[in-house]
Structures are given as C-alpha cells and as structure tokens.
Design a protein around this nucleic acid. Structure first.
Lengths: 225, 225
DNA sequence: ACCTGAACACCGTTCAAGT
DNA sequence: ACCTGAACACCGTTCAAGT
C-alpha cells in the first residue's frame, strides 16, 4: 500500500484503540503489533506518530487525567479548600476506577503528561489561593495523589486471593476471614478510601489552623459552624 | 551438563540474584534469560524452582516485606496504636525506599506473599487490640498501605521532569518552578510523606474518639464533606 | 530431580523501499 | 509524509533428552 493519500492513522485514533485494548484486556495485552492489527495497519506504522510504546501508554494515561473534574477549584470561596479537595478526590478516584489497568502508569506521577500537569497545577493554585503556604500546597498535591493512586492501584481486597487455603490461621492468627475479603472487595475498598480521605482532610484542617493563626499563642478549639 | 549431583540453583539463590538485578537495573532488566545467565545456568532451569517469572518477582517483593519492622505492634500498651502506626509507616517506607524498582509489584497488595500477609495481619491485630472495631481495623490497614505504597511509587518529585521547556507557564500558571521540583526531589517527597502521615494519624485519632465513646448521647461528630 | 538445547510464538524497534 | 515487509535482537515458556 505504501503511503495512502489520506493518513490511515492519527495520534487520536491510536490512543483510542490503545485505551480500548487496555480497558478490555489489560496493559500486557498491548503490543505494538496487536495494536496495529486492531487499527488495520502494520506494527511499524505506529512509529510515525509516537516515538515508542511508552509514549502511547502515557497518552492513554493522560486521556484518563482529562476526565478528572477540576471545576471545584474555581469556586467563589477559596476558603472552602477542604470541600474542593474532597470533591476532587472523588472525581479523581472515579476516573481511575473506570480504567483500572492504566493506573500503574498514572501512579508514577505527571511526568510530561499535559492533563496530569493541569491537575497538579489546579490543586497547587487552589491551595495557595486558600491561604496555604506554597511549600505546604506542594505537599498537599503530592500526598493526595499518593493516597488516591495508591488506593486505585492496590485496593486491599483485590490484593487478597479468594482461596481459603492460602491463609493458614497458624501463620496469620488475625486473618481468619481474609479469603472473604475478596468477596467483600468493593465494600472494603470504598470503606478504606472513605475513612482515609476523611482522616486526611480532618488532619489537614488541624494543620491549616496552625498556618492561618500563626501569631496566636494558644491553639483554640475549632469553631463549630 | 544435565543434572549435577548438587543442585546449582535454589529458590533463595534465584531470589537473591533477581533482587540484585532489580535494584541495579530495574524491573525491565529482569528477563529469565538474563537472570539465568547471572546465575550461570540456562533460562529454562529457573522453571524447576518457580512456576513462572511473576512468581520470582513476587518472591523478590516479599523479601522486601520481610524487612518491615513489626515489633512496635507487640508493645505493652495497646492504647498506643498511633505511635505504633507511625513507627511502622516509617519502617515500611524505608524498606520500600531501599528497593524502589520493586514497589510496583508490592503496591498491588499482599496477594499470596507470606511476608506481605504477615504485615497485614500484624496491623489488623494491633488495631483490634487497641479497641478499633474489626471493620475499621481492616480499613486502617488498607488505607495506610495505599498511602505508603502510593508515596513510594509516585513520588511527586520524580514525577516531574528536570526540563523547564516541559512546563509552559501559559498552560500551567502555577507550576512556574515545577522543573525545580526534580532538583528538590527528596525534600518534597519526604515533606509530603510527613505531612500526609501526620494528617492521617491526626484524623484517625479524631475518629477513634467516636468509637471509644460510643455510649455518648446521640450527638455524633458532624459529618463533613 | 534438575539441568540442557531446540523450538514455538511472540516482543519493540530500525530501516530501506515504495508512493 | 506515511505506510510496508524484512530484519535484528530480544522475550516467556514448553518439552524431550540427558544423567
């Protein structure tokens, strides 16, 4: 065939097909040859549009970051950083849950992925706008990402196996029902995420008061709304 | 050569060599052929000791979990769950930091890895012993792992690139100094981890009080977003 | 039981050749 | 510019054959 008058491929078409393949069969199922076959071309054709396979997977990951809602950070009241962080965390988690197989790529950090950077930028900007010192704002963006991607990657339940024989009670006296965890999978995951997110936000709120009232001698109890 | 009178290989020797290879050159550097070459045997020999490559990497990951200190959970005072959790988190992080390339395997959860399960068991048992309801103890084990492995995997700083051109200020108004982050890598990582760990423990302490005083009149802690 | 070489069905990537 | 087939240097894993 050689060169067609209208390109058969585009970055978008490649990313779309790769995303579908990742979602359907996982990261390992994506080889340049298989991906090319799905697109009706030969393997090397992909290299006209991406430098290598990693760049394709980065683009797939970034397409997920695009789905993360950031509108809460443009809220009128910058004081409401807690609510914004909370809503953003849920949106982030939902985006990852919809494409669990690409999470390992996302969990490594934004790298040069534009949408990933946009997310980091929005969080940092909103926290600074809310009165957090820049150094703390950086940390908050990082630690929230740690928690959210960590939870998406290694959900506690999927981490156990649905097979009682794997857990000899003599070895693990407290894990008697561990094999049941696989069953209660989603339940445990969501519970752990909720509990962790609340703890994180509660804890940050305590720290915020230290920064918001740095001159005060004695720390007051938080005021009740 | 065929079968030697004394085995050339053992699971331990294989794991040791694989660990060294992972540490020195990363996960991708480990192929069955290369690993076998390091050990002075041919590739297929490994299959006499492990069912497949994944099992080898699981064993490498488990060797890291063995390094995690759990002695703090045997402390005399079970009330001191907070201090124990804190010290354990530091020990866990240190173990991961010493072998960063294997973290992606560890972050997926304990699976059937004995040492990984021992860790989960110790945390769960200690939290129940400290008075947490079992359901909450499960969640705490999970969420702590989310945070710790998430932080080890996707350290904020390594996630950025040391190249100013990657961050056009028009696109990311708040990330003007993002390229400096790579430089300040360890600093940011450790700060984010510290801040996050403190927030997590502070937040859990608040929740603990809810459970420790369950008979208190109907007034529950205000549910926040 | 434990190692070997040969073999199978794959990989990611490069490159000259075609239009 | 964009696709092709051929080629290179690899993979993980199976298996019959050797001792």
């Amino acid at each position: 065939m050689a060169r067609p008058r209208k390109p058969l491929l585009s970055r978008d078409r490649i990313v779309e097909a790769a995303s579908a393949l990742v979602d359907a069969e996982g990261l390992d199922a994506v080889s340049t040859r298989r991906l090319a076959a799905v697109l009706g071309v030969s393997g090397p054709s992909l290299y006209n549009h991406f430098r290598n396979k990693d760049e394709i997977l980065d683009a797939v990951a970034d397409a997920v970051s695009v789905q993360v809602d950031l509108s809460m950070f443009e809220a009128s009241d910058p004081r409401d950083w807690r609510a914004a962080l909370h809503d953003w965390a849920l949106s982030y988690r939902a985006a990852l849950a919809a494409h669990p197989h690409i999470v390992p790529v996302l969990a490594r950090g934004p790298g040069r992925r534009p949408a990933g950077l946009r997310v980091a930028d929005a969080v940092f900007g909103a926290m600074v706008g809310a009165g957090w010192p820049p150094a703390q704002a950086t940390r908050i963006g990082a630690l929230m990402r740690y928690f959210i991607t960590g939870s998406a990657l290694g959900s506690f339940a999927r981490g156990f196996v649905d097979d009682e024989s794997a857990y000899d009670p003599a070895d693990y006296p407290h894990l008697g029902q561990a094999h049941l965890l696989a069953e209660r999978g989603r339940e445990v995951d969501e519970g752990a995420f909720e509990t962790g997110l609340r703890a994180l936000l509660d804890g940050l709120a305590l720290q915020y008061e230290e920064y918001a009232r740095p001159t005060e001698t004695v720390r007051r109890a938080p005021k009740r709304p």
